[in-house]
Amino acid sequence: MEPSANVLTAATCCDVLAHGSVRAAPAEIASLRQNLGPVPGHPLPTGFLRHADEQTVVGLAAVLQAIATHGLAGQRFTEWGVLASPRYLGRLTLAAAIDRFKTEGAWGVSPHVIPHRMLHSISGAISQVLKIHGPNLGVGGGPGGLLEVFRMAAGMLHGDRLPGLWVVLTGWDPEPIPGEAQPGEARCIGVALALTAPRAYPRGRRLRLTLADQRRTASGKVRGGATPDVLDLDTLLAALDAIDVRSAGVVWQLEDGGRLELEKAEACNSLAGPHGCGFGGGRVGVGSSGAGAEDSP
């Protein structure tokens, strides 16, 4: 195999059909757990969210908000997929479970911990609620999870023949500390995006992911590092809202040398080609690896 040059790979795009977000304080989460609001098609089973994690509650609420505000209530998502990327799922519950195990032993461990506190728990719950029969999986789970899930979504939308994919991102701000009173501003955040493969006549927003070649720098070390400081839920939310009122896109220069762009879909007039939304097989922008090696389209 020929060694790769230092390059950015061609971009891969997804259209954002709808998005929703929820920022909920602990008391509000308790209320959402009781009543999430209207669910398309059928009511939630009684007690469906009783044992669910807080991040599951806000993630699902964000999905339902996206559906309601973008007029998708009549849409069926049967053939769609769902990816969920929580951040440190279950810290509060697991801290209590560890303490209880220490005092009560094996019988003190709730049988609900495992089904509801795994990386795939949120995607599984959402697939149930929306009757999604496409793939569901959890992605990431910690620092860097947002980039991991967008990367995964881009790959799946361009190969799995899926009509669409829900991408649900959740996390606390600030991260709660078990056993301590949460600060008044503590919120659990859920962001949901309904993504499709790029359409010929797009409207709304488009995400473009450009992967970097992260091979070694001159010092011999692999480039790259954690991305959460660059891309987090707040900045993503702010960008999603900002696109409504300005035409310029938002670009995150990722620390691994790649980048994620969010822009008005109308501004992206090409579905293919080196600077458009090709499927990523080619490479562009030969030069130094990293941000800025390629001119903006």
């Binding site: 795994m118 990386l119 999986l137 959890g138 992605v139 999870g145 995964m152 692999v222």
Partner: peptide
């Protein structure tokens, strides 16, 4: 010293 993208996935 891997230089490509990485991801953690779970479907149980």
């Amino acid at each position: 010293d891997l230089s490509g993208p990485v991801a953690c996935v779970s479907a149980a």
